Simulated scan of single mutants.
Amino acid sequence: MKFTFFHNNINVLDLDKSVEFYKKALGLEVTKEFHAPDGSFKLVYLGDGTTPHSLELTWLRDMDRPYDLGDNESHLAFHVDDMDAALAFHKEMDCVCFENPDMGIYFINDPDGYWVEICPQ
């Protein structure tokens, strides 16, 4: 028996805002969508165009408050081929929430407060 990664899911309050953030900040593109016939939820899958792994954004119609992210120790992580350019770009976007120069990484915050780790290739 062998397991392989398929996707990760996060729930978002403003689907359009989140899709635009992930497109702009990380270059992800929509690969697939599903809309519940009764309008109660929408799923949007984003991919990097290189790996088969995807990020599933879930929007729930009846959610009326920000999601409780707890201690926010869970996060997504991305490799980038040019750390200096990426860090400058994300600082320009004003989404850098934590830098760890000793480890050579930093984190950005998405519109819902999820952290995304940026690592060198």
Rank of each mutant, 00 (worst) to 15 (best):
P37F: 11
H90K: 10
Y67M: 08
L26I: 04
Y114F: 11
Y67E: 09
Y106S: 10
F3Q: 09
V12H: 03
F41V: 03
K24A: 14
H7S: 03
L26M: 08
K91P: 04
K17F: 06
N9A: 07
R61M: 01
G113C: 09
F78A: 06
L87W: 02
L13D: 04
D81A: 13
Q121C: 12
A85W: 06
D64L: 08
N109S: 15
M93C: 11
H53M: 10
P101V: 08
D110E: 13
Y45G: 07
N72A: 09
D48G: 03
P66E: 11
G70C: 11
N8M: 13
V30R: 05
D62H: 05
N9E: 08
D64A: 10
K42G: 05
A86M: 15
P52I: 05
N11P: 08
F89P: 10
Y67G: 05
F98T: 10
N109L: 14
H7I: 02
L43K: 07
S54K: 14
T4E: 13
F21D: 06
I118N: 03
L60T: 01
P120K: 07
D82R: 15
L46I: 00
E99T: 07
Y114M: 04
M103T: 10
G70I: 06
L13C: 09
V44A: 01
F78P: 07
F3R: 06
C119P: 08
L57T: 01
L15W: 00
Y22I: 01
C119E: 14
F107H: 08
K42Y: 06
F21R: 04
C97M: 08
F34E: 02
V116E: 04
D71R: 10
D62R: 04
E99Y: 03
S18K: 01
E73W: 12
E56S: 07
F6M: 14
K32R: 10
F3A: 11
G49W: 06
V12R: 00
L15E: 02
A77F: 09
D84T: 15
F6V: 14
L57R: 00
I118T: 04
P111Y: 06
A86G: 08
F41Q: 02
N9Y: 00
C97N: 10
D48Y: 02
I105P: 07
